[in-house]
Computed example of a mutant assay.
Amino acid sequence: MEKQLLHQKFSSAFDENLIKEIEKIGIVRTYQKDDIIIDINQTLKYIPLLLTGNIKILREDADGNELLIYFLEAGETCTMSLTCCLGTSKSKIRAVAEMDSELVMIPVEYMQKWFQTNASWRNFILESYQIRFDEMLEAIDSLAFMKMDERLHKYLLNKTELHESKTINVKHQDIAEDLHTSRVVISRLLKQLENENKIKLSRNKIEVL
Rank of each mutant, 00 (worst) to 15 (best):
C78D: 06
I57N: 02
K147L: 15
K90I: 12
A74C: 05
M105C: 12
D15K: 08
M99F: 05
H180Q: 09
L5Y: 06
N54W: 00
A74V: 02
G26D: 08
K154I: 02
K159M: 15
V208M: 08
G87F: 11
R183K: 13
K33L: 14
N54H: 05
I37F: 05
I140M: 00
E76F: 04
I69K: 00
L179S: 05
R203H: 15
H163A: 15
N54P: 00
E164P: 00
P107K: 01
I22V: 13
R188A: 12
I168Y: 03
E164M: 06
E16W: 03
V184F: 13
K90F: 06
I206L: 09
F133Q: 13
E23Q: 11
A144C: 15
P48M: 06
Q32P: 05
A13R: 01
C84M: 10
L201D: 06
D15Y: 12
E194A: 11
S182R: 06
M99Q: 11
L189K: 07
I25L: 06
K24M: 14
N118H: 14
Q4D: 14
D174K: 07
S81E: 02
S101Y: 03
F14V: 10
Y110E: 10
L193A: 07
M146G: 07
K159W: 12
M148G: 07
K45I: 04
E66N: 06
L189V: 05
L201E: 04
H172W: 06
D15Q: 11
S202N: 06
K159A: 12
E2F: 15
L190S: 05
M105F: 12
N158G: 11
I47K: 03
T88P: 01
L51I: 09
T160W: 00
G53D: 01
L137A: 07
E194P: 00
L152F: 10
N17L: 07
L157W: 07
E2M: 15
L86C: 09
L58K: 00
F124K: 03
D141F: 07
N17K: 07
N123C: 14
I37C: 07
M136S: 01
V108W: 00
F145D: 03
R183H: 09
A97G: 07
T181D: 13
T167L: 14
G64F: 04
K20R: 08
E98V: 04
G26C: 10
Q4W: 11
N169C: 14
E102C: 13
I206K: 00
K3H: 12
K113M: 15
K198L: 15
K92P: 00
E127N: 04
R151N: 15
N204R: 12
T167F: 15
L157E: 10
L179D: 06
K24I: 14
K205D: 11
A119R: 11
Y46N: 10
L189E: 07
C85M: 09
L157D: 05
N41A: 11
L5Q: 13
D100P: 02
D141W: 02
K90N: 11
S165M: 10
A119Y: 13
D34N: 07
I19T: 08
R188N: 13
L162G: 08
N54C: 04
K56I: 12
I38K: 11
V185S: 09
L152W: 08
M80I: 07
D141A: 09
I40W: 00
I22D: 03
Y110D: 05
L126P: 00
T77M: 13
M111Q: 04
